[in-house]
């Protein structure tokens, strides 16, 4: 039986039966969320790859399209999303210290900033449409809208999730010991933020 004990030293976390302890539950949730984010990495890479191929093969078309883009507006949007990530993580810090009201306030700020982000993206789309950058018949437009709209869809899901977290928090479902729900939502939200960091650079600045 000695070889079994050798193998057991490879365990990084103690195996558990069922989902009795909240700690095990949190570990399961976080691993599942990271795996999901891993698959999201791939799906975004398809859209980003399709764009980058276009960007490097037809730089002059991209330059022309970038003329009509309002970088100030998008820059503001970037700040909103970065700020919402910060608010998110401050909310997590609050609930880890047992401060439920702080959690609600900070996540509320996250949701608000996410909403404004989506609204400003709508404004941007309208401006671009007036400039003639459409979904079809426009080589830049189709790639631009596919990427940003797919990301925007993720932000909308994130905002709804934030509202759900607030709802849960107000009902007292989180505490200093039990905050896995907040943490997992945070992972998702920060991932959406990271994707935007790259989209912003690739689309607007490259």
């Amino acid at each position: 039986m000695s070889e079994i004990t050798v193998e057991q030293t490879h365990h990084e976390a103690p195996p558990n039966h069922g989902h009795a302890s909240p700690h095990a539950r949190a570990e399961n949730l976080k691993l599942a969320m990271w795996l999901y984010l891993g698959s999201e990495v791939i799906i975004f890479s398809v859209l980003i790859g399709a764009y980058l191929v276009f960007r490097f093969n037809y730089p002059e078309l991209v330059r022309a399209a970038q003329e009509s883009i309002n970088v100030a507006l998008v820059g503001l949007n970037t700040f909103l999303l970065l700020g919402s990530s910060w608010a998110m993580v401050m909310g997590l810090l609050n609930i880890q210290r047992g401060n439920r009201d702080g959690l609600v306030r900070w996540i509320g700020l996250t949701a608000l900033m996410g909403t404004v982000f989506v609204a400003l993206q709508g404004v941007e789309y309208t401006e671009l449409a007036h400039e003639g950058i459409a979904v079809y018949g426009n080589e830049f437009g189709m790639r631009f809208y596919a990427m940003t709209a797919f990301h925007g869809f993720h932000v909308i899901i994130g905002v709804l999730w934030a509202l759900f977290v607030i709802f849960n928090a107000r009902r007292g479902n989180y505490s200093a010991e039990n905050y896995a729900g907040v943490e997992v939502f945070g992972l998702y939200w920060h991932f959406v933020d990271v994707v935007w960091i790259f989209l912003f650079t690739f689309i607007y600045l490259f």
């Binding site: 791939i42 799906i43 398809v46 859209l47 797919f150």
Partner: peptide, 8 residues
């Protein structure tokens, strides 16, 4: 996810 992206 590659298939998901391509199908999209």
């Amino acid at each position: 996810p590659f298939l998901a992206g391509a199908l999209t």
